[in-house]
Write a protein that binds this DNA or RNA. Structure first.
Lengths: 103, 103
DNA sequence: TCTATATTTAGCTAAATAGCTAAATATAGA
DNA sequence: TCTATATTTAGCTATTTAGCTAAATATAGA
């Protein structure tokens, strides 16, 4: 996984944006309502997340609707688990380690 | 999961240190041999990882033996999965709870 | 005690980052 | 065309971060 993704995740505001978009798509303005930072500040956060391919913006009229690239986020976190050889609980395939740890 | 952990993971050198320690404990000097950066630079990376509680150093004579806090890393990544409601492959249910808290 | 070794701390610089305001861009609608 | 709205870009500042060298600290052993 590229460092861009790790860096994108390192900021609390950006993590919260991702969490918001986990629930539904939102316009830039709607997202901004959840924060106290100025809109240009949020806008730059969007661009960091876009660069990491974690979100995607669709221009509709004069608003931009952002949505989470859920598969990218998913792949990123799974690859992080693999990077550090952390087992995914409840799934022992392909990780030749202790199989059971259950919850 | 605290931002400290996310930030600690955001640097490639630190990720590599964690990967090295995933295999076995190593002295600060041994770890440093795997990198081209100066030792004081590595030392600061160790301290960032220590602050995040991802590694732990044991002083033995005049060397320091570092080891990975595997359970902390494991919990961190699993909590990251939960933060973003990413399902663990091979287990779709049981994720109906949320334990969000990015800060 | 003196010296060598391992590591960290101090103190610096350069680059990256997050925040701001003001200006630019694009679109919808009167 | 003119105005209002939504968003980004430009340009600035302050803070953080990663790198460096030199100095400090701690320990082992001659």
């Amino acid at each position: 996984m590229p460092t861009k993704v790790y860096k994108a995740l390192a900021d609390p505001t950006r993590r919260k944006i991702l969490q918001l978009l986990r629930e539904r798509t939102m316009t830039a303005g709607e997202i901004a309502e959840h924060f106290t930072s100025a809109k240009p500040t949020l806008s730059r956060h969007f661009s960091v997340l876009r660069e990491a391919d974690l979100i995607q913006g669709d221009k509709q009229a004069n608003t931009i609707i952002y949505r989470l690239n859920i598969s990218v986020l998913e792949e990123a976190l799974l690859s992080m688990m693999e990077t550090f050889k952390i087992e995914r609980r409840g799934n022992q395939d392909e990780d030749r380690k202790q199989s059971d740890q259950s919850e």
